[in-house]
Amino acid sequence: MMKYLCFFLFTFFFLNTTVAQHHNVKNSKSSSGHDKSYISLDDYKQFFKKTPDFKDTSSYMVIQGDTLIAIDSRKKKSVPFEYKDDVFLNLYKKIAFNDNHKSKDGKSRLKYWKSGINVYFSKSIPAQSQKNLKKFAKEISEGIDSLNISFVTDINKANYIVYCSGDFEYASNIEKSEADFSINWNGKNQITKGFLKIDRTTYFNETLMNEKMQQLFIESLGYFRTTDKLDCHSYFSKCYDSKKVFGLLDKEILKYHYSYGICKGIDEETFDGLHENAKNHKKNHPDMPFMMIHIEP
């Protein structure tokens, strides 16, 4: 599994793992011929949760008082930072930083599905609604490499369950709801489980049911919240529209959320700081791309 660590800024209070590596990482070649990259000792400890082996002198180096630890370059993938304009970023933040749930420190953080989503439909979901949601899932995830949605018939292989009122209540926190979703996430703000519930008597025909399921499903992909800044045809808009369209902007928002070119799981302050630094970097070094490094431990 690939992990990320944001080195460039605010590295240490969340276990996120994207590396912007202009000062933290260097490359060299090991005795075995494999490329090696170096990260700071602090970053190494933070990311790998262990102390490096200092007995092996080839596994580290000290430059100008900084201890740099070697990692296998094959486990590292560089991705250019994804720049976006302020209008987009302000909009994205309204949607992606959901104040409805804050951590103990009072901050809300970006949440995302790290592993693939395996959706299981309970038997009470009509076949046509299943088909509709499958089609919708394909449409919205198309072209987003890190968002993989599949459908399974074995509930044991699922991490996302779609069910109706009257079925087994898989998520107790939405037991009394007529239509809602519930997601679980880990300490890295990676979503690990999802539940979508709908009441067939309230959403009494397929049209209403399908519309609601689509809306809830897309919100559950990032614990997104809707905004009054967008016209009703957007899935990220607060207002209902019987003719919602997953348009260019919706696609851009979802794609950006799942882009490797940004940090995941971070809070808004960190997000802003990272973008500020990236902008400054571009200003000061227009010919040098600002890179995000993804490391596989």
Binding site: Q21, H22, V25, K26, N27, Y83, P289, M291
Partner: peptide, 13 residues
């Protein structure tokens, strides 16, 4: 050494 990491061009928006 660190300059090595700034090789990929970025689409500037």
């Amino acid at each position: 050494i660190l300059l090595l990491f700034f090789l990929i061009p970025v689409n500037i928006l």
